[in-house]
Nucleic acid binder design. Structure first.
Length: 861
RNA sequence: GGGUGCUUAGCUCAGUGGUAGAGCGUCUCGUUUACACCGAGAAUGUCGGGGGUUCGAAACCCUCAGCGCCCA
């Protein structure tokens, strides 16, 4: 049943229309992609949010932009797939469930691995994925029939297959290395799971050895000295050159250790001599390998001192630091101390515990060849980064990447598909394979990014050769914040390019910024400036939130967000609502063919010309991912051109009837405007468009096309003149204290085309057409305006206004004269610029004459 | 320490060589049958400082100052 002509409520209430419209779209199946379609594919995979997550303002931005692209392409006739899903978020999710257990006084070990993992699945079924429901409120046009989870069967299969493929290609290996270790989560972390903060530590200088055979080392980690295997200096350091190769006494444990020379030591740092603690520092580890320094482990997995054979065993690492320094002081070995000493310290990104470098056996991905392929894909132009200014950051990262530690000592995640035999054999078990009897599987699981890094192809069924994979890979564009360029994007690039035989996962990487508070400060819980997108949607509607975010989305840059701005977008929605309501009350229609443009009045011609320009420019801005500029453009067309000028200038003809052509034109303009706005504000545009046109849905409507034959310079010039006249008269009325509502006798005398519109202008200006004796008269361009102010002209106000205007114009005139009198300018400036200045000079002269005459005509009150 | 941005109206930001812009805020007037979530009008800027290139610089170059982010 057609909904056309359904009367619109006088106020727009988003809450009433949003949910039903989303239901309508879903039940119509508009978002379900067809792998067998003959249309060209346009694919986006949603960066999968954590299963533990709720929708935050950053998601809202990310999804607004993706939805906008998806909807545009759908309207342009592409087979659009926007694939949603979630990430199992290993540590985060395990932490959530462990906390629940802890509340019952239990740990995961009380349950055992199998039971615990069951418990996590149970948690996921009951409370996971809240964000998916929240995405529906945003209006996201995702294909729910293809929803994926990184732990589901298909994706697990992909993980097994890729692990094996990478292992066979010798891109995965197991080794004993110094890794980042979280003593609270009890697992290894990759570099990107470590956050560096400036912490207040201490910097002490400790004398090793005695007398001639002594050296002072500087350290922030005195507690690890029991694990020292050497002291290192720079090979060219004159202070220590003579000592290289000799030994000094390590205090507290009374062990002799060698002094070695290594380029890595910075002679300007501290004393220029550093302790080498091979098992507890990544740099020291590197040096130790080069110089055969022994690895002495003096701390356990909980960060408790263990194995040093000293009184400090059993102490927490931080307590031990204090105790060790106190003891050294007692022994007279502290040469200098600096406290607090501010330096960067790594923290676990999940629980904030200070990370401990730890020697341990882990699985690694050899990234060099993968990173190179990823870098090449961008360098060759196969993958574009938008905005291009962010590409150097990408290269900086991929060109200097360390091997990636992928094993985690967790239970929630993809278990490493490696099995060990009784005699140290090792097999990697791929999909559908099984390990020989008696083999035991590796206890660890894989880093979550190992599976989410496969998101661009595992979601389509890889390694099977599926129809989806053939149709939708590689994806068209990846939309994400620049903050996860190094985390997820680089991993996607590496793993996809390898798995898919050199075909990178996306054609374009479109990076947006972060949403910050209204003062441009980062949102954080501690600052208390975090905003909730759901609250905003309740209050202002999803369209208002989306439009605000899109309008702030300049490529690659952060945006500030204030609640009032969302209110402003809500006002815009209301404006659209009322304008459409007014238009329909006045007979706006899309029935029948468009009238012959040449027969239209200039106002109609003008709005069609402006519409064409708006469609053309907005479309090109959208194609360039310039969401902010496109939004701004459409906003001003709708509010300024359409509402403030077109509707006002057309009121006379609507009031007097005989406006069939204008009704059709207005119907067309609104129809096209709603299409253009639909990707940004899907709900209200759908409601209004269906009401106006009786069409089925904007989701499947055609994207507006700029009809270039509508471009009309003459009409634009004419309306610009009308606007100037109206603005000038309004200003005069205002200065004279005439109420905006008051009708006053007046007439606009002019000739030529403009004369046809003096009654339309008079209508807007509330001029009464009757016989009168003018008490005020002035000229605006070719238009002479005469008004009857009933004798009460405020001469002083008018004189002040005219004097001010005169000063402005005289300044303009002077600027133009100076330029034209400048030989250099005349000789070197382009002709069109010179012409423009000459025209400006003529205009200013005319203005000056006009204003001077007006001033002279004023009574000398 | 290395890299990389930024500094334009009260606030947040557009503006890559030709008369300084937007949104919000501010001031004045206004309940006109689309809209007070509105309309009309107005005010507001040595474009961070200094130097240079150019006929012409907010824009290009140098320099200083301040702020931010990423990496170590």
């Amino acid at each position: 049943m057609s909904q056309r002509g359904k009367e619109l409520a006088s106020t727009f209430s988003p809450a009433e229309i949003e949910a039903p419209l989303y239901e309508k779209w879903i039940s119509a199946g508009y978002f379900t992609a067809d792998a067998n379609s003959k249309k060209e594919a346009f694919t986006i995979v949603l960066p999968p949010p954590n299963v533990t997550g709720v929708l935050h303002i950053g998601h809202a931005l990310d999804q607004t932009l993706q939805d906008c692209l998806a909807r545009i392409k759908r309207m342009k006739g592409y087979e659009v797939l926007w694939l949603p899903g979630m990430d199992h978020a290993g540590i985060a999710t395990q932490n959530v469930v462990e906390k629940q257990l802890a509340a019952q006084g239990m740990s995961r070990h009380d349950l055992g691995r199998e039971e615990f993992v069951k418990k996590v699945w149970q948690w996921k079924a009951e409370s996971g994925g809240a964000i998916l429901g929240q995405m529906r409120r945003m209006g996201d046009s995702v294909d729910w029939s293809r929803e994926r989870f990184t732990m589901d069967e298909g994706m697990s299969n992909s993980v097994l297959a890729l692990f094996k493929k990478m292992y066979d290609a010798e891109l995965i290996y197991r080794a004993e290395r110094i890794i980042n270790w979280c003593p609270r989560c009890l697992t290894a972390l990759s570099d990107i799971e470590v956050e560096h903060q400036d912490d207040a530590g201490e910097f002490v200088q400790v004398r090793y050895g005695d007398g001639e055979q002594s050296i002072v080392v500087a350290t922030t980690r005195a507690e690890t000295m029991m694990g020292d295997g050497a002291v290192a200096v720079h090979p060219d350091d004159p202070r220590y050159k003579h000592m290289i190769g000799t030994e000094v006494l390590l205090p507290l444990v009374n062990r002799m250790i060698p002094i070695i020379a290594d380029e890595l030591v910075d002679p300007d740092f501290g004393t220029g001599a550093v302790k080498v603690t091979a098992a507890h520092d990544p740099n020291d580890f590197e040096m130790a390998l080069r110089h055969n320094v022994p690895f002495v482990v003096i701390m356990n997995e909980h960060g408790i001192m263990e194995g040093s054979g000293t009184e400090f065993d059993g102490m927490d690492r931080f307590d031990a630091r204090v105790a060790v320094v106190a003891k050294l002081k007692e022994l007279g070995r502290i040469v200098a101390e600096k406290r607090p000493y501010i330096h960067a310290v790594g923290h676990c990104s999940r629980c904030d515990t200070t990370v401990e470098p730890r020697l341990s056996k882990q699985w690694f991905v050899k990234v060099a060849p993968l990173a190179k392929a990823s870098a090449d894909a961008v360098r060759s132009g196969a993958v574009k980064i938008e905005p291009v200014e962010l590409a150097p950051r990408y290269f900086d990262w991929v060109d200097n990447m360390h091997d990636w530690c992928i094993s985690r000592q967790l239970w929630w995640g993809h278990r490493i598909p490696v099995w060990y035999g009784p005699n140290g054999e090792m097999v990697v078990v791929g999909p559908g394979e099984s390990a020989p009897a008696g083999y035991v599987q590796d206890a660890d699981v894989l880093d979550t990014w190992f599976s989410s890094g496969q998101w661009a192809f595992s979601t389509f069924g890889w390694p099977e050769k599926t129809a989806d994979l053939a149709k939708f890979y590689p994806t068209s564009v990846l939309v994400t914040g620049y903050d996860i360029l190094f985390f997820w994007v680089v991993r996607m690039m590496m793993m996809s390019t390898f798995a898919m035989d050199g075909v990178p996962p996306f054609k374009t990487i479109m990076l947006h910024g972060l949403v910050r508070d209204q003062f441009g400060k980062k949102m954080s819980k501690s600052r208390g400036n975090v905003v909730d997108p759901l609250e905003f949607m309740d209050k202002y509607g999803a369209d208002a939130l989306r439009f605000t975010l899109a309008r702030g989305a300049n490529p690659g840059t952060d945006q500030a967000l204030a609640e009032e701005w969302i209110g402003g977008s809500r006002n815009f929605a209301t404006k659209l609502w009322n304008a459409t309501r007014f238009a329909m009350m006045n007979g706006a229609t899309v029935e029948g063919p468009m009238p012959d443009v040449s027969k239209l009045n200039a106002i109609d011609k003008w709005i069609l010309s402006r519409l064409t320009e708006t469609i053309r420019d907005a479309d090109s801005l959208f194609e360039k991912f310039e969401f902010a500029k496109a939004s701004e453009l459409i906003y001003h067309f709708a509010w300024d051109d359409l509402c403030d000028w077109y509707l006002e200038l057309s009121k006379e003809s609507f009031a007097t009837g005989n406006a069939a052509d204008s009704q059709r034109v207005l119907g067309h303009v609104l129809d096209q405007l709603m299409r253009l706005l639909h990707p940004l504000m899907p709900f209200i545009t759908e409601e209004l468009w269906v009401s106006l046109t009786g069409g089925e849905s904007l989701v499947i409507a055609q994207w507006p096309e700029a009809i270039l034959s509508y471009l009309d310079n003459a009409a634009e010039n004419l309306v610009t003149q009308m606007q100037a006249v109206i603005t000038e008269v309004r200003r005069f009325r205002n200065d004279q204290g005439v109420k905006a509502t008051a009708k006053i006798p007046g007439r606009l005398a002019t000739n030529g085309e403009l004369a046809k519109y003096s009654s339309a202008m008079g209508f807007v200006l509330k001029l009464e057409a009757k016989e009168f004796t003018p008490t005020a008269s002035f000229e605006i361009g070719s238009v002479k305006c005469e008004l009857d102010l009933s004798g009460t002209v405020d001469v002083a106000a008018e004189r002040a206004r005219l004097t001010k205007d005169l000063a402005t114009v005289q300044k303009d005139q002077q600027t133009a004269q100076v330029k034209l009198g400048n030989e250099g300018f005349m000789a070197k400036a382009p002709l069109e610029v010179v012409t423009e200045i000459k025209e400006r000079l003529v205009k200013t002269q005319a203005e000056i004459e006009r204003i001077t005459a007006a001033l002279a005509a004023l009574p000398s009150a």
